[in-house]
Structure formats: C-alpha cells, structure tokens
Amino acid sequence: DNLVIALHSYEPSHDGDLGFEKGEQLRILEQSGEWWKAQSLTTGQEGFIPFNFVAKA
C-alpha cells in the first residue's frame, strides 16, 4: 500500500495543503513533483504534502 510516516510535523501554508504531526501515517493518493496528494489515516482529511517530510512506512 502507499503508506508513509511523517518525519516532521507540517503546518499548511496554502489552501489545499494537508497539515500533519510527526509520526502520523498517511496514504499517498498521487505522486507528482515535490507535492504529493495524501490522506491522513488519523483525520481522514486529504490534501497536498511536501514529499520530503515523509518516508515509506
């Protein structure tokens, strides 16, 4: 599955970004460039995340 774990917390800075906490698990929905579309397994919310803040779970 496309699961990743957050290496750092991220505060959203643009509409459509997904904020998350360090250690949170996310499911990657789309990989494109440096911003990936993801869904939080904690909150169920979707949005874009910086790819370098996460690692394969």
Rank of each mutant, 00 (worst) to 15 (best):
A55K: 09
E46W: 10
D17N: 10
F20L: 04
G23P: 00
A6V: 06
A38W: 03
W36P: 04
L3R: 06
L26D: 00
V4K: 02
H8V: 13
F48K: 10
K22E: 09
E30C: 14
L3I: 15
E34S: 12
E34Q: 12
I5Q: 04
R27N: 05
N2S: 10
A55E: 14
Q25E: 09
A6L: 04
P50D: 09
A55G: 09
G19P: 09
F48E: 05
K22F: 06
F20D: 00
A38P: 00
S40N: 10
V4D: 00
F51D: 08
H14G: 12
W35G: 06
W35R: 14
Q31V: 09
D17I: 08
E34K: 13
E34N: 13
L29G: 01
P50M: 04
E46G: 03
S9K: 12
T43V: 01
W36A: 10
V54Y: 04
F53C: 15
D1V: 10
F53L: 12
V4F: 15
Q31I: 09
P12F: 04
K56A: 13
D15W: 12
Q45G: 07
E21W: 07
Q39S: 06
G44Y: 07
A6S: 03
G16P: 02
V4A: 08
S13R: 15
N2R: 09
D17S: 09
P12I: 06
T43C: 04
I49G: 01
H14N: 12
R27H: 06
K37I: 11
G33H: 04
L29D: 02
L41D: 02
A57E: 11
G33R: 04
V4L: 06
Q45V: 08
P12N: 04
E24M: 04
G47Q: 00
L7I: 11
E30Q: 10
H14W: 10
D1L: 10
A57L: 15
P50I: 08
I5K: 04
L3H: 06
S9Y: 07
I5V: 11
L29A: 02
S13P: 06
F51K: 15
H14V: 09
A57C: 14
T43L: 01
E11T: 15
K56N: 11
F48A: 05
L7Y: 04
N52L: 08
V54T: 03
G44W: 06
Q39T: 06
S32P: 04
L29C: 06
T42G: 07
Y10T: 02
N52E: 13
F51V: 11
H8D: 08
H14T: 09
K22A: 11
H14C: 15
I5P: 00
L3N: 04
P50C: 14
V4H: 08
G47C: 07
G33C: 07
G23S: 02
S40Q: 03
G44M: 09
G23F: 05
P50W: 10
K37N: 05
Q31H: 10
W36C: 10
K56Y: 13
K37D: 01
E24D: 11
G19C: 07
F20R: 01
E11V: 14
L3W: 09
D17L: 13
K56G: 11
F53N: 04
E21M: 13
I5A: 03
F20S: 00
Y10E: 00
N52P: 05
F20P: 00
G23W: 05
H8T: 10
V54L: 06
V4Y: 15
P12L: 03
K56E: 10
E24S: 04
A57V: 15
T42C: 10
